[in-house]
Design a protein around this nucleic acid. Sequence first.
DNA 1: TTTCGGCACGGTAGCGCTACCATGATTGGC
DNA 2: GCCAATCATGGTAGCGCTACCGTGCCGAAA
Lengths: 350, 350
Amino acid sequence: MAALAGVGAITVSRALRSPELVSETLRRQIDKAVRDLAYVPDLNARALASKRTDVLGVLVPSLSHTVFTDVLRGVYDGVDGTKLQVQVGNTRYDPHEEERLVASFLRHKPAAMIVSGVDQTPAARAMLENAGCPVVQIMDVTDDPIQLCIGFRHDEAGRLMTEHLIAQGYRRIAFISGWMSIRSTGRLRGYRKALADAGLTEPCLTHSLSREELTRLAAMSEPGVPPFLEFSRPSLGREMFRRALASAPDLDAVFCNNDSLALGVLFECLAQGIDVPRDMGVAGFNDLDFTDACSPSLSSVRTHRYRNGYAAVTAVRQLMDGSYEGPNVVDLGVEIAARRSTQRCVGDVA
Amino acid sequence: MAALAGVGAITVSRALRSPELVSETLRRQIDKAVRDLAYVPDLNARALASKRTDVLGVLVPSLSHTVFTDVLRGVYDGVDGTKLQVQVGNTRYDPHEEERLVASFLRHKPAAMIVSGVDQTPAARAMLENAGCPVVQIMDVTDDPIQLCIGFRHDEAGRLMTEHLIAQGYRRIAFISGWMSIRSTGRLRGYRKALADAGLTEPCLTHSLSREELTRLAAMSEPGVPPFLEFSRPSLGREMFRRALASAPDLDAVFCNNDSLALGVLFECLAQGIDVPRDMGVAGFNDLDFTDACSPSLSSVRTHRYRNGYAAVTAVRQLMDGSYEGPNVVDLGVEIAARRSTQRCVGDVA
DNA sequence: TTTCGGCACGGTAGCGCTACCATGATTGGC
DNA sequence: GCCAATCATGGTAGCGCTACCGTGCCGAAA
């Protein structure tokens, strides 16, 4: 092919990768030859020869949760206009699958890796440490990142929302979660801390389903639907809220581990004629796109998922060209989106 | 490395790819050496030498819509236990981005490709036709697939739901959509056909926002959030429903282009004190996980997204080993999930 | 015993590209 | 007009793996 353009093979390579190094005349000849032959460089050969690629590997625990697709949107926007190619891996909340994927991704010699959470298996961590490319952990923070972590504190988030509920006058506050990821556990810890600090107790334990119940509920779903999806369905929120009410009839608020569960709780209250927010405060987590459209609008914890993905890519690019100068632990923080569903104090009194 | 195991390099290669061709003794020696040296084969070199990879390229228009993440779940479940590696590309509903991604994916010499929809650009189509690997189009059907298409008819889906509403006694039925993808247009066509067949007219045109309004609404969203997401938010459903009511006060049903919009409509009815389903029928599309938990539960069109992804992978695997024997156009069909939000006839009368 | 097919394994030669160095042409300063 | 510095271009030698063929060995048939 290079011969047909009347130049050496290496000049073609140069013309395609750094056109500014090739004279205008030759460049035009080569461009023409490329078009005539519909020449497409083989990326595998390029990767083999140059020992690097433009692949940005991104590992997320789920593609079904808006949470991580928002992150991916930030990632995609961040690589826009760069040479980087995003390659997504789905760990399905399984540390071993994550480990497998880390190995598999690293075999392709990626330009950089972005992984979710800070709880990789020791083997996965070791591989990432020796990967020889920038590695950024997202959606959580730790004092001991592989290289750089950008995220927020889940325990802090849980504490803040619980304190908000307490400030609104709620006292019997339940924490509802269908399935506990490592991050949910952090939120639960924050919730408990806030309760303890205020001298309150946990009215009931509905954050953890028994193994049998999990299995039973999983069986209800369409075959092949992984449990973690099923376990944040609104219908599960309704079910768990009914159980919480049964075991603690004096309940006056529920803090849901995610907005989907909260949506279910909202509908259950509607169906039972329970007044939200007067008789029951309802709070979600993540501030998904439907929270403001609910009636009453749903309070939630706003996490900066899009920004997290975007910031991770920005950091990756700076790490690649050596210009990164920020700290190696970045806490993006969270915000309480206080809406009608937890607004008991103000407004009602006035 | 091969030397350290006391064997030839080629034997190592064989031992790793087809262990049955190597004697037990050597295989054990090699296994040990592999572990000792933490040897990891370079996939780029393998791809270069063997001119093939185990990458299954999957192109979807969005990672933010549950619709496509459900498909991806099916895909991931389908490749489970095989050598295939999923690689996801996000076209962001942009045909040119899709074309770019097709080119980029094909350079990696994938084992097969799965693309969404049947409306690729001529250039993308040509590349896929000459890709030399199985190509499956999903989530829509056409008489003229690239190689094989597995999906469902959107016009048929739109027609069925509209007929359901008519059968329930609704007569002034609006179609609401924030943004029209190529597939939404099909649903609108089916809706109009059903109305025409029943001798009914379209009460108002709320399926198409003006360019200015789209821009204004897009500006409302978080920077970087692509429009197509914003345009299916529940809050947009509330807004568009208000407009529809204003331009057609005698409206008695709305068929929403997706469940998110329908959720907004449901809440707007709740806020305005409009009785669903008696005074207003509300229908969505896709049958997302919250439809059954709404109060009243939301009628929708169930599309087989998970199954579509799974079936595509199954077909890909059969195409790869030459055992595929099905037709080259597969219509998975849709089902009407008739729930309370459109249940005007039965029950109320009895 | 010879012959031959089948088996386990190794040597050689690339796959298509790029890193590295070499070459020749051009420029500018003395 | 000479030399060094700078530029554009080409040649060579791999990157790490696998396809292809070849070697030596075995047991079964002649």
